[in-house]
C-alpha cells in the first residue's frame, strides 16, 4: 500500500493557496491543507477543500466540442484550434481587430495571463483585454 501527499497550488484563483493532494495507491482521495505554507497557513476556502472532486468528475469535459447544426459534436484539438483561429481571422478581416475581446482567467498563472495579454495586443491587435471577473 502506498499513501503520500503531493504539495500543489490551488487551481481556483490567483491567491496562491497551497494544499496537499492525498494519493492512495495512485488514486486521488482528498485534499489536506498545508499548515506551514506561507500563503494559506493551513486554511482553505470551500473551493480549495473540494478541489479534488472535479478531477474525476464524470461531468468534466475531456474532449473539445464544436457546435455543428445547433449541436455540440466531439472534435480533435487540431479541429477545435483551427475553428477558433478561422473565426478570429474572419472577425478581424470583416469587422477590424477591435471587434475582438479577450477575458483572461483567474485560474491561470500570472505568466499565462501575461502571454494572453501579449497574444491579444500583438497577435489579435486590440487592447480589449480584461479580467474574467468583469464578465
Amino acid at each position: 500500500m502506498n499513501y503520500e501527499n503531493v504539495l500543489t497550488t490551488c487551481p481556483y484563483c490567483g491567491a496562491g493557496c497551497n494544499f496537499y493532494l492525498q494519493i492512495m495507491d495512485g488514486e486521488l482521495v482528498g485534499v489536506l491543507p498545508c499548515k506551514d505554507h506561507p500563503v494559506s497557513q493551513g486554511k482553505l476556502c470551500i473551493k480549495g477543500w473540494t478541489a479534488n472532486e472535479f478531477v474525476t468528475s464524470p461531468e468534466r469535459l475531456t474532449k473539445p466540442l464544436i457546435k455543428r447544426d445547433g449541436k455540440f459534436v466531439e472534435a480533435s484539438w487540431d479541429e477545435a484550434l483551427d475553428a477558433v483561429a478561422a473565426k478570429f481571422k474572419a472577425t478581424r478581416e470583416n469587422h477590424g481587430p477591435d471587434a475582438l475581446a479577450v477575458l483572461a482567467s483567474a485560474k491561470i498563472t500570472n505568466e499565462e495571463n501575461y502571454a494572453l495579454m501579449k497574444f491579444t495586443r500583438a497577435v489579435l491587435g486590440t487592447n480589449n483585454i480584461d479580467h474574467c471577473a468583469r464578465l
Binding site: M1, E4, L7, C34, D36
Partner: peptide
C-alpha cells in the same frame, strides 16, 4: 509492522506519509 504511518518532511513542508 507492514508500514509506519507518521509525518514526512519534504522540501521544507511536513505532511502525513505511509513509510513502507
Amino acid at each position: 509492522v507492514a508500514a509506519v504511518y507518521g509525518l514526512r518532511e519534504r522540501d521544507g513542508h511536513t505532511a502525513p506519509y505511509l513509510f513502507t
